[in-house]
């Protein structure tokens, strides 16, 4: 994975104009959204639940079904393990594999950095969800990265 360095705050890999940025220590991380930014991001959307991060199981192919379909009822028992959220903000820097999404009630999560293709796919899906206000179900791991995402 490409090494990411920060040259200065003025050319920070973090988004500018955000409060609390000084308390963040890691390079290339986004900063937390304040209340006004959250309110702005939620305009036109609805807040998600306040569940704690997911315990969903990793899968090589999708296992959930879109809400309202026949399969949704059959996979209902699995849904509870997933973060059902709105994407409230997106973030990236010029660095490789450094796209992030802000999930409602969860916070900033980086897209998985395992490879370019996956990082791009996850960011494209989250971007569409942000644009359309669609609900996503995301699975993150202890590395605070999104490793799987559905967009409905």
């Amino acid at each position: 994975m490409p090494q990411q360095t920060r040259t200065s705050r003025s050319t920070s890999t973090k988004p500018g104009g955000m409060p609390q940025q000084d308390i963040l220590s890691q390079d290339s991380d986004p900063v937390a959204l304040d209340e006004s930014q959250l309110a702005l991001a939620q305009t036109g959307g609805t807040a998600g639940s306040t569940q704690t991060p997911t315990m969903a199981q990793a899968a090589a192919e999708p296992v959930l079904h879109p809400p309202g379909t026949a399969g949704a009822a059959m996979s209902a028992s699995m849904v509870g393990a997933w973060n059902t959220r709105k994407v409230l903000a997106l973030y990236m820097t010029q660095h490789s594999r450094n796209g992030w999404a802000y999930l409602d009630s969860v916070g900033w999560r980086r897209f998985a950095t395992t490879n370019d293709s996956a990082h791009l796919a996850l960011s494209m899906i989250a971007s569409t969800a942000r644009t359309t206000g669609a609900t996503v179900q995301a699975r993150d791991e202890a590395d605070n990265q999104i490793h799987e995402i559905y967009c409905w």
Partner: peptide
């Protein structure tokens, strides 16, 4: 298109086609 999915594997995007289900 009723849903879209991907995970952390390369080239592993999926689309849920109405009345057909998930397709890679």
């Amino acid at each position: 298109i009723l849903g879209v999915w991907s995970n952390d594997s390369a080239r592993n995007g999926w689309a849920y086609l109405e009345n057909y289900g998930w397709h890679r």
